[in-house]
Simulated assay, not measured.
Amino acid sequence: MGFLDLFGHSGAARRGEADPADMAHLVAWTRNHYGVEAFVEPRTTVTDVTVALVAHDGEWTRRVVGERGAQRLSGALGVPVYDARRVGYPQRMRDYEARRRVLERRAAALT
């Protein structure tokens, strides 16, 4: 077991490749939602290249894909792929999060 394995990092992600389980999640998520667009996020000091998938209603998911996985995303998922640094995130994603927070506050107030 390597040091990064203690923090949940797979060997595939360290080599710039997507973990097969993460890619399977992205494919399944894309099939179960419509109007999906992919936003590739750059590598940071903490994570490798990631992708955020955003559906028509703003619901989203994020996974580490690595550089090689990011290059194969469009073909693998069949959705438009954007560079998040250049285009930012869609307003519907922020609206979805705002609605989710309101619903969580209401649920907490009822308990």
Rank of each mutant, 00 (worst) to 15 (best):
residue 1 M to F: 01
residue 2 G to W: 08
residue 2 G to K: 15
residue 4 L to R: 04
residue 6 L to K: 11
residue 6 L to P: 00
residue 9 H to W: 15
residue 9 H to P: 03
residue 10 S to R: 10
residue 11 G to E: 13
residue 11 G to N: 02
residue 12 A to K: 11
residue 13 A to P: 01
residue 13 A to I: 04
residue 13 A to C: 05
residue 15 R to I: 06
residue 15 R to Q: 14
residue 15 R to V: 12
residue 17 E to M: 07
residue 18 A to R: 11
residue 19 D to W: 01
residue 19 D to G: 00
residue 20 P to W: 02
residue 21 A to Q: 09
residue 21 A to C: 04
residue 23 M to Q: 14
residue 23 M to D: 12
residue 24 A to N: 11
residue 24 A to E: 13
residue 25 H to M: 07
residue 25 H to L: 03
residue 27 V to H: 10
residue 27 V to M: 12
residue 28 A to M: 04
residue 29 W to I: 07
residue 29 W to L: 11
residue 31 R to D: 11
residue 33 H to S: 07
residue 34 Y to M: 00
residue 34 Y to W: 08
residue 34 Y to E: 03
residue 35 G to D: 03
residue 35 G to W: 03
residue 35 G to E: 04
residue 35 G to A: 00
residue 36 V to I: 07
residue 36 V to T: 11
residue 36 V to M: 10
residue 37 E to P: 03
residue 38 A to D: 08
residue 39 F to C: 06
residue 40 V to C: 07
residue 40 V to Y: 06
residue 41 E to N: 14
residue 41 E to F: 13
residue 44 T to V: 09
residue 45 T to V: 01
residue 46 V to P: 10
residue 47 T to K: 13
residue 47 T to F: 13
residue 47 T to P: 09
residue 47 T to E: 06
residue 48 D to C: 10
residue 48 D to N: 06
residue 48 D to E: 08
residue 50 T to V: 10
residue 50 T to E: 15
residue 52 A to Q: 10
residue 53 L to A: 07
residue 54 V to H: 13
residue 54 V to Q: 13
residue 56 H to F: 11
residue 56 H to P: 00
residue 57 D to L: 01
residue 58 G to E: 08
residue 60 W to C: 11
residue 61 T to Q: 11
residue 63 R to M: 07
residue 64 V to A: 12
residue 65 V to F: 00
residue 65 V to Q: 00
residue 66 G to C: 08
residue 66 G to F: 13
residue 67 E to K: 02
residue 68 R to L: 06
residue 69 G to H: 11
residue 69 G to R: 07
residue 69 G to A: 11
residue 69 G to L: 09
residue 70 A to H: 15
residue 70 A to S: 05
residue 73 L to F: 02
residue 75 G to S: 02
residue 76 A to M: 10
residue 78 G to I: 12
residue 78 G to D: 04
residue 78 G to S: 02
residue 79 V to L: 00
residue 80 P to K: 06
residue 80 P to V: 04
residue 83 D to T: 01
residue 84 A to T: 00
residue 84 A to P: 00
residue 86 R to I: 03
residue 88 G to E: 04
residue 89 Y to A: 05
residue 89 Y to R: 05
residue 89 Y to L: 14
residue 90 P to S: 09
residue 91 Q to E: 12
residue 93 M to Q: 11
residue 93 M to A: 05
residue 93 M to T: 08
residue 95 D to N: 01
residue 95 D to F: 01
residue 98 A to D: 05
residue 99 R to G: 04
residue 100 R to A: 06
residue 100 R to W: 08
residue 101 R to T: 10
residue 101 R to S: 14
residue 102 V to C: 05
residue 103 L to H: 10
residue 103 L to A: 09
residue 103 L to P: 05
residue 104 E to A: 15
residue 104 E to C: 04
residue 106 R to P: 03
residue 108 A to R: 13
residue 108 A to E: 15
residue 108 A to I: 05
residue 108 A to D: 10
residue 108 A to S: 12
residue 109 A to G: 14
residue 110 L to S: 12
residue 110 L to F: 13
residue 110 L to D: 08
residue 111 T to C: 09
